[in-house]
Structures are given as C-alpha cells and as structure tokens.
Design a binder for these strands. Structure first.
Lengths: 210, 210
DNA sequence: CGACTTATTGATCGCTTGATCAACAACGTG
DNA sequence: CACGTTGTTGATCAAGCGATCAATAAGTCG
C-alpha cells in the first residue's frame, strides 16, 4: 500500500536546469506578476520539486530580482532597437511612446509597480529597480538631448525633462493597471509630450498615429 | 505556576473601540504602508487582543480598504481646501502641486502604490482606489477647465489633460518612493506643467516658488 | 555490469497570516 | 452585593510561505 510513488525524474546539467527554473520564474512573473514568484509555484511551472528551486537559487528574493531584471531589461532593449530605427529625435520619441503604451505591454506595468513596493523588503530587487530605472532615464535623456541640440525640442534641462517623461510614463502605466484606458491616449499623449518638450505642434502627433 | 496572567482589560462601547481599532490601522498604514496592516499588528497598535480586531472588522481586506480611504480622502480634502484659497486657476494648480510634492507627504505615496497592487486581490480596496482616483481626477479637471475658460491654459481637452496631470503626479510620487529626489523638482516641475497646459511661461513657476 | 557521483525528490521545520471560539471578567442592574 | 449581559482575551486551526536535508535514483565510468 505504501508504494508512495516517486515521480520519475530526468537528470539535466546544472546549467540547463538552472536556466529552466529561471525561465519558469520569468514566465510566471510576466503572466501573474512578481508576487506570484513563489518557491512552490515556480517549482510547479518548471515541473520540478520545490527543493530543487531552492537548490539552484540563493534565495527567492534573488530569483524575484532576476525575473524583474530579465523582463524589464528585455523591454528596454526592445524599445531601444525600435528607437534606433527612427531618424529624428521626435520620431524616436514617438516610437518609444507608441511602444511603451502598447496594450500588449500591460503585464510589464504590473511588474514595475510591484517592484516599487516589493523593493522595500528586498534589497536585491531594489538595487535592480534603481539600475533599470537609470538605464531608462539614460535612454530618454539621450533622445531629449539630441532633440534639444537639433532644435526639435526646446528644453533647458534635458536631464530633468527625461525624469519627468519617465514619471509620466510610469504614472500612466500604473493607471492602466488599476482600470483606466482613457480611450484617446496616443493622440492626446503625443500632443502632451510635444508641449513638455516644446516641440512644434504636430511633430509628434503625426508620427504617433502613423 | 500556571498563573497564566490574563491581561487587565477595560470595557469600552463598541463604537469607541471600533473607532480605536480603525484609527490604529490608519496610523499604522500611514507609518508603514498598507501592507503593514495585519490582524496582529493592528491589535498591538490598538493595545487589544488579536481576536478583538477580527471581532470589530468584517475582514482584514475591508480594514485595509478603510485605511486607504481615510488616508487618501483626507489628503484630497486637504489639497482641496488649499486650492480653494488660491484665486486664479494657475495659482490653484501651483498650490496643488506644491502640496502634493511636499516631502512630508512621502508616506502617502507608499499607500497609493501599494493600493494599486493590493487591489488585485482585494476587490473592496480596488473599488476604493477607483473612487478616490475619480475624485482626484474631478478636482484636477475642474481646475484645468476653469483655466481653459479663463484663457490661462490653452488646452483643448481638459478632461484628458487632467488624466495626464494625475499620471504625472502618480508617476513622480512613485519615483520618490524608490529612491529619487531629483533636487530641483518644484521649479522645473512648474515649468513642465506650464507647457502641459499651454500656460504663459512663468505663470506657474513664479507661484510655485512663492 | 556493478559502483560511484550527484541531480533530484518530497517530507519536514519554523514562521506568519486571517479567522474562529470557548472561556473569562468588567460593568450596569436589581 | 450578587447576577447577568457582553466586551474582551488568548489559545487554536488551517493555509501558505521560504528553507533544509536525508533519502533516492539517474547517468557515468571503470
């Protein structure tokens, strides 16, 4: 009667298994948020025993931070490539905003907002959040500075303007997270950012609509 | 040896005790965030047994939602009164921004950001969040609309502009929560909002500095 | 083919959470 | 001063968390 039936297991190289576990954590975080990254749920997602997750990861806090980095770095990298394709600063910014506020990307908002609060009890995560935010700021700052130099934007402090753009992006993302989808976002948003950057009316709106 | 020593208790009217417990929850949330509002921590803060908290509250989710409402409604009310004192729309907005981004108010940011994520598993809280956000939006919208009418602001869609302002406020608040305090916030922010609303340069900056 | 290395399992510990409830005692009442 | 109502206590339950570790078996190597 006590054929307690041990599950059949396949041995894999530590590197491969470790990657699988991290991948499972990333997929889980993308789907249900960072707070869904638990020892047991990751184990289930990776189809391994709970103990194995703990074995391959220093701590769950670290795994959460890793998942955050993977997801948000990938997003930034994606945006960077899209931005690279555009020629003018205004075009770059328009593409950036269109990408960030794409509806497909709502899940990333959840990851960000959760990271801000979870960072308060997870210093590893907090450090990651700071790093990726800095990277975002740098990307935005570059675009704004280029626009200021070319005359497309009339900004006195590109660095500060980049912070405010980032704040705007974060805030609006958080809003959609709760329940809002103010309908005419792209067009009106373009108009808004034109003003923020002192661009000529229409330079961003036209690009944003495509 | 089994003098298990029951703590001396003072009987109070249900209304009074109930108020004490809610007050303790509010104070706790203000100090350490909504996530600190636990059955036992609230009990300790109110100096009662854990069971009493459960006795006076339908569920902890409800208590968290109540604490959120109390804190954020009070903030909004405070801002409303300050805004009322200013005469021009630009002045009202300048006062509003100065108040919201006052350093003393950092704790409220934590409450907001936590509410956005906790609302995902607490429908009572989610409903409260939507309500208070609507109220904020209405307040901002009124100011912007008045400014549009008076000619102080050149905005085509006050309603949308209010959403964006709110997004900006929320996003920048969240940033300070993580670790940022971009130094020259008030002045540069005023300039930013002038542009957002198409106000004449200086109308907000001058007021914000006071 | 047997032995050894080691990837993997799953039970387990200790802790925290919200919630329940029998027992207790403080206060108003007769 | 005793009685009874009821505000209050604190132990307790069940669930979920991260982490640990002895036991197990898969794959490799002589």
């Amino acid at each position: 009667m006590s054929r307690s039936s041990r599950a059949t297991s396949v041995r894999k190289s530590p590197a491969e298994r470790s990657a699988e576990i991290v991948d499972a954590a990333v997929a889980l975080a993308r789907r249900e948020g960072l707070s869904a990254v638990k020892l047991r749920s990751v184990a289930a997602a990776a189809a391994v025993a709970p103990g194995l997750v703990a074995h391959y990861v220093p701590s769950m806090d670290a795994l959460v931070a890793t998942a955050f980095e993977r997801i948000t770095r990938a997003e930034l990298e994606e945006v960077r490539e899209i931005v690279l394709a555009a020629s003018t600063p205004a075009g770059k910014l328009a593409e950036l905003l269109a990408t960030v506020f794409d509806d497909e990307r709502e899940d990333v908002s959840l990851v960000w907002v959760e990271a801000w609060t979870m960072g308060r009890g997870n210093e590893t995560l907090a450090a990651s959040v700071r790093d990726v935010m800095d990277a975002w700021h740098a990307t935005l700052s570059d675009i704004v500075a280029a626009g200021a130099e070319s005359g497309d934007f009339r900004v006195t402090a590109p660095n500060e303007a980049a912070w405010h753009l980032l704040g705007l992006i974060d805030g609006l993302s958080a809003q959609t997270l709760v329940h809002w989808r103010p309908a005419s976002r792209p067009a009106v948003l373009g108009e808004l950012v034109e003003r923020v950057l002192g661009a000529r009316p229409g330079t961003l709106v036209a690009l944003a609509v495509e």
